[in-house]
Write a protein that binds this DNA or RNA. Sequence first.
DNA 1: GGGAAATGGTTATGATAAATAACTAATAAT
DNA 2: ATTATTAGTTATTTATCATAACCATTTCCC
Lengths: 167, 167
Amino acid sequence: MSARDARNAHVRAMRTPPVVERESSAAVDLGPLSGFIGYRLRRAQLQVLAGFEQALREIGLSPGQLSVLVVISRNPGLTQSDVCTALGIQRANFTPLLHALEATGLATRQVLPADRRSNTLQLTALGRDVLVRALALHERLERRITDCLGGGGRAQLAELLRKLEAL
Amino acid sequence: MSARDARNAHVRAMRTPPVVERESSAAVDLGPLSGFIGYRLRRAQLQVLAGFEQALREIGLSPGQLSVLVVISRNPGLTQSDVCTALGIQRANFTPLLHALEATGLATRQVLPADRRSNTLQLTALGRDVLVRALALHERLERRITDCLGGGGRAQLAELLRKLEAL
DNA sequence: GGGAAATGGTTATGATAAATAACTAATAAT
DNA sequence: ATTATTAGTTATTTATCATAACCATTTCCC
């Protein structure tokens, strides 16, 4: 990095023709990697994830938890499996996620009388309240993204990603 | 899901006006979630990741490993830290990743005489060969993505994601 | 009606990626 | 020469995703 650059700075300044430049900081060639969608996706997702945690820090919801709250808020009475398939979560991974929402008093399970294997999900009053606040905080993140991409870019990105889900 | 639909099918067929439709399969309302870039990113990234593993199965490289091979192939003599900052990997997480590449004979570390704390990285002959084959296999995935998004869409996506990394 | 098969939810477990802190050896700074 | 940085390693923690096995319930079908 710049360590070695600093070390060799005098050499370069006096005698080195600025040809090789000794890997000066950002001079790393990513080659075909720059065009890999998967690579770009990973880095972008990490960045947005960091933004999410920052934006929702005071509430402390994970992305998955927020998504579940949104879905059961708009579709009261869905079963766990319904939510899982809607969100692309494994049923096995959904159990602890949901239990966390129950433990914090945001959601409740209720056995469906018509099929006593199934649990239907509802938000508590607290859950509705927290959801509203979380969505407001999340707006900040989305605004940052819009500022970064422009309104059109943001819409394009959402659409392209949506298409990609059907890969 | 369709389970409950099937259960109530006779009822609906005889007397129920097709109004409520009992959460028919894809009728889950994601609400604002559909517009969340973070949500779309997560799902798209998972999909592309699955495509990656499928495409490179016969070689068995992880995305991170491939990215490292590419970078040290195009920039021989980089130190570990150089590669880390170029790829956005923590130095601590890079160590086992690199050791795996060494253990499979794809890359070598070499102490830099000018600074014996640093290791410079090189590909072995095998590493170069595997890299070529891996890139060829990876082409398939990229082609699938291009088929899915169109050439223009793919370029747009790459650019938008690149911008997002600077969020 | 009653046994086999399928379904909803849970548990346990493993694999992977990422973050943090503490440590060593070597170099740089003063 | 002492001190402070820096490169790399180790250990640990956390979170996400995947798989398989299991129980209770319901459906299928004979």
